[in-house]
Nucleic acid binder design. Structure first.
Length: 494
RNA sequence: GGUCCCGUCGUCUAGUGGUCCAGGACGUCAGGUUCUCAUCCUGAAGAUCGCGGGUUCGACUCCCGCCGGGAUCACCA
């Protein structure tokens, strides 16, 4: 049994969005599960489409999610180089093998001529097959024209680890281009050479390549290469459930999610469970559980829709599962945007998720605050709006009391009286949560009011926020000076 | 249009001939937890299993047709 070697082979032409990284995750999972190797390879044979900075972006995305690769363009490995534009010699060598065995020939037509053939076929409502125009005596290939594969059409049946038993007729096999006239190989040729030379055992990629499988199978045979295990994953669909997810649908790339404060754990869990489950009712999986339980056979064959609500829920779950110190450490740094600058990338004036006003507060204070909001935090970018009142006195907002369904039925004078009572009691408190709770309960009796009334009143006075964590805990964190100062401000406004 | 793939609650899915008048999760709605928001708990609504034929004692599960959706038909990957 050969050691498992999987690869992720993106072309550096743009962002790595959630749909794209799923195949990377699957490949990584398989490699880790088998104790094999996960390889990163850049397929940059189309210089025109290359996007500046996308290599860095791709690498950063992978690493941020914890999908470490064992061999790759930047770290090398036993089969280096891992960038196709640096492997031209290999393609040249194998192309010569094909020429020598009569399985490749120079394309004598201009692209206009080929286009004419194509249009002619279309007019006759017949599928266009280049091989129907295969020249009888092709010129010797000198590199100035495309080099084509001389196919041997036949029906194919093959096993796809995800899609199951697959088949296609001979009409799907054609003479495709191996090497372009610019000297670079096509994907169709290059990836097969690379996978072979790099000893890749599992090819996992998007379903857009399924229809090319007969061509690849034909090439593998001509080259006498062993065919790796093949797996084609369905696309992740956009919110409308129709088109595949892409940047232009507003699909954010992976790093956008990270920057918004989504945890890698949640993203990995979410992406893995988009179209995969282990057959039980388990929804939350750690990275280790995924490595242990993942299998291509259980990957759904139909495309799954990207459901942001579910991601949000999952992220909240993972945030709650972290201990406070760990969670706090994660809120300290907003990862820098690597590679491509997103047009809508947010301002970079914040280096942490905490609001500006928090910078003069000690870490211990911020940790207490975080402890109070942990169970209501869905993603880190929400921290400022959830915590603002812990760091600054917000202006008195009359609407909070006048619009409160419990409080609006009382006269201001009455509310003022209760707040005065509260102030008097709180002045005597040591502001420990226990003492605060005790005094708050006494106040309930003294005023004869329900918590819904009294606590709402004090909560609004001390936070000026529409919602906040529970009263005693909030007061304890806020501290005596701040709490009393804010009560005075509220009193003055009533 | 040719070829290939797919089709279970709004969404992600469990389900491989009977235990399914279809189970779980997200979302939604209602109730509970000394106040708000959230968490947590409980409950509810929500799928004639795309449609129509077969096969079978019996089909979400097998077969055929249809419809719908997707992918692909480049000197892009």
């Amino acid at each position: 049994m050969k050691p498992v070697r999987t690869r992720f082979a993106p072309s550096p032409t743009g962002y790595l969005h959630v749909g794209g990284i799923r195949t990377a995750l699957f490949a990584w999972l398989l490699a880790r599960q088998a104790g094999g190797a996960f390889v990163l390879r850049f397929e940059d044979t189309d210089k025109k489409r290359e996007v500046e900075g996308s290599r860095e972006h791709l690498i950063k995305s992978l690493l941020t999610l914890g999908l470490e690769y064992d061999e790759g363009p930047d770290i090398g490995g036993p089969f280096a180089p891992y960038t196709q534009s640096e492997r031209l010699q290999s393609y040249q060598t194998w192309a010569q093998v094909l020429i020598d065995t009569g399985r490749a020939y120079a394309d004598p037509y201009t692209s206009e001529e080929v286009q004419a053939f194509r249009e002619q076929a279309q007019a006759e409502k017949k599928p266009f097959l280049y091989r129907n125009h295969r020249p009888e005596n092709p010129p010797k290939w000198d590199g100035s024209t495309p080099l084509r594969f001389k196919s041997e059409p036949k029906d194919y049946r093959w096993e796809d680890a995800i899609m199951g038993e697959s088949r296609a007729g001979a009409e799907a096999v054609d003479d495709f281009i191996l090497i372009k006239s610019d000297g670079f190989p096509t994907y169709n040729f290059a990836h097969i050479i690379d996978d072979h030379e790099m000893e890749i055992t599992h090819v996992i990629r998007g379903q857009e390549f399924i229809s090319s499988m007969p061509n690849y199978l034909n090439l593998y045979e001509a080259l006498e290469f062993e065919i790796p295990i093949l797996a084609h994953a369905p696309h992740v669909l956009g919110p409308d459930g129709k088109k595949k997810l892409g940047k232009r649908d507003g699909a954010k790339d992976v790093l956008d999610y990270i920057r918004d404060g989504y945890l890698p754990e949640a993203l990995v869990n979410f992406i893995a469970s988009l179209g995969w489950n282990d057959g039980t009712e388990q929804e939350i999986f750690t990275r280790e559980e995924l490595i242990e339980k993942f299998s291509l056979e259980r990957v759904q064959r139909s495309g799954a829709r990207f459901d942001e609500d579910r991601l949000l829920w999952m992220n909240g779950h993972w945030i709650r599962s972290l201990n406070l110190d760990e969670l706090y450490a994660r809120t300290l740094v907003i990862p820098a945007k690597a590679g491509i600058q997103s047009v809508d990338s947010s301002r970079s004036d914040h280096i942490s998720y905490w609001p500006k006003e928090s910078e003069n507060y000690p870490e211990s204070y911020k940790k207490q605050v975080l402890g109070l909001i942990q169970e209501r935090l869905k993603y880190f970018k929400e921290i400022p709006e959830l915590t603002a009142f812990f760091f600054e006195d917000l202006p008195v907002n009359r609407e909070l009391i006048d619009g409160n369904k419990q409080l609006k039925k009382f006269e201001h004078a009455e509310l003022k009286g209760w707040l005065e009572q509260a102030k008097a009691s709180l002045q005597e408190s040591d502001f420990s949560a226990a003492n605060l709770t005790e005094r708050l309960n006494e106040l309930l009796e003294a005023t004869g009011q329900k918590p819904g009334v009294l606590f709402s009143l004090i909560r609004i006075a001390t936070t000026q926020a529409p919602f906040s964590p529970s009263l005693a805990e909030t007061l304890a964190v806020l501290g005596k000076d701040t709490a009393l100062r804010r009560i005075d401000a509220q009193l003055a406004a009533l």
